[in-house]
């Protein structure tokens, strides 16, 4: 009884053989449709801010440094690889690549920055929300954005016209410190 049971257990084990991989000595390619690190195509991006508005991890930042120049910064260190940005980009400028071995000791390796020269739109300057049908996916922050690229923080404010004061105010942005006793 006992012995037979044990022999059967051993049989299960040996039938399976060795299943663990010799990773990392052996590479393990990701399957198609894998959601790895998102990659931006700067030629396609129109700077509409759709991805930044819908990133659940809030790890895509937009900063308008003047009327014409918008900087988009993506910081992979907090990315959850959910693929929402790629889904919602109206220009299909983002692809979810198959890269997943992203550990690094240099944050710059996993950061992507795009400088965008913006045209001034006839309607509002930044009009992503009209391209999205689903109501709850429409963005809440239209217009000019002033996220802090230094501390990598989305600033939950935007202005309809480019505002140098707001830019000034957010340059030295610091995260809320600890409450003092």
């Amino acid at each position: 009884m006992w012995l037979w049971n044990k022999i059967k257990q051993l049989a299960i084990s040996f039938r399976a053989g060795v299943v663990t991989l010799r990773y990392p000595f052996e590479s393990r390619p990701a399957p198609e449709d894998f959601r790895g690190q998102p990659v931006w195509d700067h030629a396609k991006c129109i700077g509409c801010a759709g991805c930044a508005n819908h990133c659940p991890a809030r790890t895509i930042f937009l900063r308008d440094i003047c009327q014409e120049v918008r900087i988009l910064l993506y910081d992979s260190s907090r990315c959850t690889y959910c693929g929402r940005c790629a889904d919602l980009c109206p220009e299909k400028a983002i692809t979810m690549s198959d890269r997943f071995e992203l550990a690094t000791d240099n944050r710059q390796d996993i950061t992507q920055t795009i400088e965008l020269f913006m045209m001034t739109c006839q309607r509002c300057g930044r009009c992503y929300d009209l391209e999205i049908k689903n109501y709850i996916d429409r963005l809440s922050r239209l217009g000019y954005r002033y996220d802090s690229l230094e501390v990598r923080k989305v600033i939950q404010r935007s202005t309809a016209d480019f505002s140098p004061e707001e830019l000034e105010k957010t340059i030295g942005y610091e995260r809320p410190g600890r409450l003092d006793k």
């Binding site: 084990s13 060795v18 663990t20």
Partner: peptide, 13 residues
């Protein structure tokens, strides 16, 4: 040896 044998039974390298 012990660890290797155990690993084989557990389908590990």
């Amino acid at each position: 040896v012990m660890r290797k044998v155990t690993a084989r039974i557990q389908s590990r390298q």
